[in-house]
Structures are given as C-alpha cells and as structure tokens.
C-alpha cells in the first residue's frame, strides 16, 4: 500500500497528471502556481509600484495604463492585487507549518498518554468553542498587528483541529494488533509512537494541511478586511477590499477583483486538498466530522 500511496501522491509524469487526478485539481495546481510565481516575481510582473499614487487618475476606469483601473488614491489595482498575494501566501504557509507541527506534537502526546490527554483535550475544547475570527482579532488587538502576531493569531485557532485529527488517528491505531505486537517485542513507548503510530497520521495530515492553509488565508483576509490585520500600508487582498468599502457603490470592481483573486486562491487549495484526500484515503470523509 505504501508505494501505491507514494505513486498516487507524486505522479511520475506530469503529462499523465490530468488523466490521473482529474481536470479540476490540474487546473487548480496551475492557478496556484501562477499566483505563487506572481507573488514571488511581483516587481517584474506588476505594471506599477503598488503604493505609487497618481493624483490625476483617481478611481479611473480600466485602461491600457491601468488594466483594472485605479483606487481612490490613484494606485494601480492590478499591481496591488499581484502584490497582495504575498502576505496571504506567507501567512497561509507559515500558519500551516506551525499548526501542523504543533498540532502533531500535541496530538501524538495526547493520544498516547492518558494523563496528558484529559488536560490537553479540555484546553482544545475550550479553544474550539471560541470562533476563530473572534479569537484572532482579540489576540491581534491586544498584541498589536504585525505579520508575526497575525500569524500567531491565525495559527492558534487552527491547532485544535489538527490535534483532534492526530489524536483520533493515534487512538484508533493504537488498538491495532501490530502495536500490541510491538509492545510484546519490548519496543519502548516513544519508539512505538514514532515508528508505528506517527506514520499513520501523514496521509490525513497532508489533506488537513491544505484545509488549514485555505482557512488561514481566509482568516487573514477577514482580519485585514475588518482592519485588524497587518498594517494598512501593506497591500493585502483584505486591506484593498477594506479601503474600497467606502467607494463600493461607485466602483464595485475595487472589491470584486481582489475578492476574485482571494476566492480563486482558496478554491484552488481546497480542490487540491479534495484531490489529495481522494488519492490518499477515500474513506476520510468519515473522519473529518
């Protein structure tokens, strides 16, 4: 099964990719790749400096100079949308890494040691009970908004979901006879955890990580939109939309273009997650609840 999984997750030839994983995930991967490349090479791709103001062209309609038009300060919307991907991606990837690493560690410990479990799970239940956006804005408003506090504020509410997933896998895997067998072979607890239990979590965690990433990007946008995200001087998709709110009835495209970019980005990640789930574990829908 192991090598089948690996082949499924990393198809050898990209030419067969579409045929193997389907149309939607292939398109998603391409869209995502474009967004990532655009963000990395923004200075070369964007037609203008995203914070350069053109007082002569405020709220301008799309033109050859400004393909998507300009905002109320006369800044180029297209350039701002391209640069806006940077913060979203950094936060998405960063929050996912932290949430997965911390969640995996806590989940493994909690799944295997009954004593720790009771305490850890009460804390996780408590964290789960606070809506993630509320928790995040509370943290940011108290600690001040920087990319690090925003990342922390987004990571913390995601951790319980990872912990619960890892824990449930460990709890069911430790009932497996091969774990009992390892026990009777004199294998130590930490080693059983590492060698026999942890590998079971990798496939579901890969899937969960994509959903965490999508959710983190979404929360970041909401924070920016509500004005509790990174500094308003940095162009992020949420910030662009927040500033455009006042002019929305005049010029809806100011909100709709960054909204489209944001939606496409999250959609692609979710579709990739679904594809990964279908390949890695077709029965995971059950566990997700």
């Amino acid at each position: 099964m192991a090598d089948k999984l690996i082949r499924g997750a990393f198809p050898l030839s990209t030419g067969k990719l579409a045929a193997r994983v389907g149309f939607a995930p292939t398109v998603s991967a391409i869209v995502l790749l474009l967004i990532v490349l655009g963000a990395i090479f923004a200075p070369y791709v964007a037609p203008h400096d995203p914070i350069m103001q053109d007082p002569t062209a405020r709220l301008a309609a799309p033109s050859a100079e400004y393909p998507l038009g300009t905002d109320n300060y006369g800044r180029d919307l297209l350039s701002r949308v391209i640069y806006g991907a940077r913060v979203s991606l950094i936060i998405g990837i960063g929050a996912t890494l932290f949430a997965v690493v911390l969640g995996l560690t806590i989940g493994l410990v909690s799944g295997f040691f009954r004593l720790a479990d009771a305490i850890v799970m009460r804390i996780m239940d408590g964290l789960m009970a606070i809506p993630s956006v509320l928790l995040a804005i509370a943290i940011v408003s108290l600690m001040g908004a920087s990319i690090w506090t925003v990342m922390a504020a987004i990571t913390i509410p995601e951790i319980p979901r990872v912990v619960r997933l890892v824990r449930s896998i460990v709890l069911s895997a430790r009932e497996e006879p091969y774990v009992e067998a390892a026990l009777s072979l004199g294998t130590s607890m930490p080693r059983i955890l590492w060698r026999h239990l942890m590998p079971n979590t990798f496939a579901p965690l890969t899937v969960q990580a994509t959903y965490v990433c999508a959710s983190a990007i979404l929360t970041e946008a909401i924070l920016s939109f509500l004005g509790a995200g990174v500094s308003t001087e940095t162009p992020t998709w949420g910030n662009i939309m927040a500033e455009a709110r006042l002019y929305f009835q005049l010029k809806p495209s100011l909100i709709l273009w960054p909204g489209l970019a944001l939606s496409l980005c999250i959609l692609s990640i979710n579709l990739l997650g679904d594809a990964a789930r279908d390949v890695l574990d077709p029965r995971m829908g059950k566990r997700e609840a």
Binding site: E180, A181, A182
Partner: peptide, 14 residues
Amino acid sequence: QMVFQDPYRSLNPR
C-alpha cells in the same frame, strides 16, 4: 511472544 488472529492487521503495513 504472541501470534494474533488477524494476519492482515498484526503486521505494520509500512
């Protein structure tokens, strides 16, 4: 040492 009932689950597949 022990030999278990279900040979499909008593060996770690990985």
